[in-house]
């Protein structure tokens, strides 16, 4: 049972971690909580469903069809996040800090209602994927779970490389450190912010697609709970810190799964949030929060 719970927790955690990255990167650069991120996650799943069903060539689940579907999701959800930034946050850059936050909540409500009114207010099933199940020490694991875990890890490693090794990553870190000084050094902070939103949105959209594949159906309000949980994960790991978000995501998935499996399934959220409160009492910055110089 332990290994099975570990697998359950890691799958759940990898989705949380992918969403948490979007929250934490935006916070790192703008010191703002992007509440519309959970809606990017939801719309990512809808784009994925659309790509899988609308384009007949993809429906056969060939490897290329799959890759193209993911690229479509990545591109469109990234672009959506960027346009949300341009429309709803950029005009408020000089406004008090509360204004973009409220704007974000507004965007979230608008996006959710758009899907509800113009797509469907019911759950929509995704095509069922043929998976093979393996037994590891009496625990069941299927190809989809392995895929979700490996794919998320790969994306996170890529992101880490991008931030620490490339010139763009360096520029992003500089922007996070100080907008005005980085601008004096010739960095276009506006386009860096757009890039942060693109990457965060793309990862969120992919997380939505993975979530939809894993649970088999998607719905206009599917973003709410994972969004809250991923935000918690970002805080747990230290908001503003990319590695912290990854760690926080996996940790939260595991805490949730183990408290549901071993203590009480009806109180698992209580336990999870108690852990968060304890964490914030003893280390308000989160697990990896002190790492201020590498905020993005």
């Amino acid at each position: 049972m332990f290994i099975q719970q570990l697998i359950n927790g890691l799958t759940l955690g990898s989705i949380y971690a992918l969403i948490a990255l979007g929250y934490t990167m935006v916070y790192g650069v703008l010191l703002m909580i992007n509440f519309a991120h959970s809606e990017i996650f939801m719309i990512g799943a809808y784009i994925g469903l659309w790509a899988l069903t609308a384009i007949p060539a993809f429906a056969s689940f060939t490897i290329t069809g799959f890759i193209i579907t993911f690229l479509v999701v990545l591109l469109f959800s990234g672009l959506l996040a960027v346009s949300v930034e341009k429309l709803a946050y950029k005009p408020l850059r000089q406004a008090p800090r509360l204004s973009p936050l409220i704007s974000a909540i507004g965007v979230s409500i608008v996006l959710q209602n758009l899907i509800m009114l113009f797509v469907s207010n019911q759950s929509m099933p995704l095509p069922e994927f043929k998976t093979t199940r393996y037994q590891i020490f009496s625990a069941e694991v299927d190809t989809l779970q392995i895929f979700i875990f490996c794919f998320s890890i790969a994306l996170m490693l890529l992101l880490n490389l991008f931030i620490s090794k490339t010139k763009f990553g360096k520029a992003m870190r500089a922007t996070a450190h100080s907008h005005s000084v980085s601008q004096l050094m010739g960095i276009n902070s506006s386009s860096m912010i757009a890039m942060v939103f693109f990457i965060g949105g793309a990862l969120g959209g992919i997380a939505g697609m993975l979530n939809g594949m894993y649970y088999g159906s998607i719905k206009y309000n599917m973003g709410f709970f994972p969004g809250i949980k991923a935000f918690t994960a970002a805080v747990l790991g230290g908001i503003g810190n990319v590695k912290g978000a990854m760690l926080g995501g996996f940790l939260l998935g595991l805490i949730e799964t183990f408290s549901a499996g071993y203590i009480s399934s009806q109180n698992k959220d209580v336990i999870t949030f108690c852990v968060l409160i304890l964490m914030l009492v003893f280390k308000p910055t989160g697990i990896l929060g002190e790492n201020v110089t590498e905020k993005v």
């Binding site: 049972m1 359950n8 649970y215 709970f225 949730e256 549901a260 009806q266 698992k268």
Partner: peptide, 20 residues
């Protein structure tokens, strides 16, 4: 005899326990 939260999506932890 267990309770779950409405709106949750992942019940695998509980089901793994029940499986035993």
């Amino acid at each position: 005899y267990d309770g779950i939260n409405t709106g949750d999506k992942d019940f695998k932890a509980l089901l793994t326990k029940i499986k035993t």
